[in-house]
Design a protein around this nucleic acid. Structure first.
Length: 465
DNA sequence: GCGATCAGAT
DNA sequence: CACATCTGATCGC
């Protein structure tokens, strides 16, 4: 996890750790050995510690995340390969899956072989034995963040917890969740669509906690849906003559909606580099698999290596001032498309303003697209209100705020959580476990987000192996 | 001495 | 731009 994750990235009270694989605190007195590791998706800040050759535990993730992780290459390695300085590119996580040796006669030797990545299909509850005494059921649910990204529903004797990983909780996403039979027990009846509960009434039981994607917690913007963003961009692209080429700055996984919409609207493929092609040709979405080409001359639309673009969209040195629009090495006019978070109202104004510029014959050589991969506060509140969990725990905090963001968060979500002191809680009924509610005011400023981890586990003695 | 890991800037 | 990535410093065997 990025810096500032509470409880050392554990999903308390379970000894399950999410998106954090480093051992760096093993000599600290608050060390607790995880019994299960979960990986929500493969962005670099969620795979900390996994590249260590010494990592040797099973990791639960989606099929797409597994494929993406095993093919993961860092930029430096890709650049060396491209310049013929390295014949075989180092795959950062190759050590997580070592295939058996196969002799010419077909005999397999399993010694030293392993496959630590335990891929689960989506929406398929699967039991995992943490130890002789405790079993949990894990269900993966698509997170609408990037290929392979999932949320985790964790069910066990200490109650049910939903960990969102990184996600974008748009209205359609909430609607889909409210119809998910595995989540319905944790959604108040008034939030479940009538048609979805035709199977009969389900007794509502609040989630013990939601671990929430707080990357954009402090953004109060009402942002357009991904569909609104993509539709607007398509309208703008359609205003350019077919001789114009486009470079889409999809600099990290998660901008595929843009690429899919372009391929679908203009009936063409998207040029990507060898690395992106190797990843995209192994994802489960059949349409996403089908829209890419490695032939740069076959399309106007490019999403190739951003620091090593193909000649078609690579622009010669810029002449600043009132020079004509820059042309690429092969003389094409290239428009640069950059995804950024932007409010719905600003997006509408932007669309109007670019359409006017195009209409007036002004030169436009870059476009923005208002696509957010994280939910800002209004969407987070709608999401939490759908479930009314007992508490909300941030996936990340801003270390410099020393827990103030968490303190604020409790107030911001006060009207979105379940608050009935009479209702029994599996967690509170568990003997000998101390309740946790985020930082007490006298703990602020001291903990860097690692709030009373030892106390919260009821002391670490009994938990260490 | 070098790879692994961390922390901060962009 | 953004908030994932890269770079250079530091750690540790």
């Amino acid at each position: 996890m990025p810096p500032g994750t509470p409880y050392n990235s554990f999903v308390l009270p379970y000894r399950i750790r999410v998106d954090e694989f480093s051992d760096s605190y093993k000599n600290s007195e608050s060390y607790v050995k995880p019994l299960l590791h979960l990986l929500s998706h493969t962005h670099a800040d969620h795979i900390n510690g996994l590249a260590a050759k010494s990592f040797g535990y099973k990791v639960i993730c989606s099929n797409d995340a597994k494929e993406m992780l095993l093919r993961h290459e860092v930029y430096a390695e890709r650049a060396l390969h491209e310049n013929d300085m390295r014949a075989v590119v180092k795959r950062t996580f190759a050590h997580l899956k070592v295939d058996p040796w196969i002799q010419p006669d077909g005999t397999k030797f399993y010694h030293g072989s392993r496959d630590l990545l335990f891929a689960l299909p989506l929406n398929t509850p699967t039991p995992f034995e943490l130890n002789a005494l405790e079993t949990v059921t894990i269900t993966l649910i698509d997170a609408n963040h990037c290929p392979g990204a999932v949320m985790f529903l964790i069910q066990g004797d200490k109650g049910a917890i939903l960990h969102t990983g990184d996600f974008r909780a748009e209205p359609w996403f909430l609607d889909t969740l409210s119809r998910n039979p595995f989540l319905q027990p944790y959604i108040p009846a008034e939030n479940v669509p009538a048609v979805a509960e035709a199977e009969g009434p389900i007794t509502y039981q609040p989630l013990e906690a939601i671990h929430l994607d707080t990357a954009s917690l402090l953004s109060t913007l009402k942002v357009p849906t991904k569909e609104q963003a993509v539709t607007g961009l398509i309208e703008l692209i359609a205003l350019f003559p077919p001789t114009t080429y486009f470079f889409i700055n999809s600099w990290t996984w998660g901008y595929e909606d843009i690429l899919k919409a372009i391929a679908n609207t203009f009936h063409c493929k998207i040029h990507v580099d060898r690395y992106k092609h190797s990843i995209y040709s192994h994802v489960s979405d059949p349409f996403l698999r089908s829209i890419f080409t490695c032939d740069p001359s076959s399309t106007r639309f490019h999403a190739c290596e951003r620091f090593d673009r193909c000649d078609i969209v690579s622009v010669e040195d810029y002449n600043y001032g009132n020079e004509p629009a820059p042309l690429s090495k092969v003389g094409k006019k290239v428009v640069y498309v950059n995804p950024i978070p932007m409010s719905e109202s600003k997006w509408e104004m932007y669309l109007t303003s670019v359409k006017r510029q195009m209409n007036d014959g002004e030169n436009v050589d870059s476009l923005l697209v208002a696509l957010s991969r994280h939910s800002p506060l209004p969407e987070l509140m709608s999401f939490v209100s759908l479930f009314r969990p007992r508490k909300v725990i941030p996936n990340t905090l801003i270390p410099a705020l020393h827990g103030l963001d968490w303190a604020c968060m409790k107030i911001m979500f006060a009207d979105c959580v379940f608050n009935d002191p009479e209702a029994p809680s599996a967690y509170h009924d568990t003997e000998g476990i101390v309740d946790y509610n985020g930082p007490a005011s006298d703990e602020l400023d001291y903990n860097d987000g690692d709030v009373s981890f030892k106390n919260l586990m009821g002391g670490t003695q009994a938990l260490q192996d």
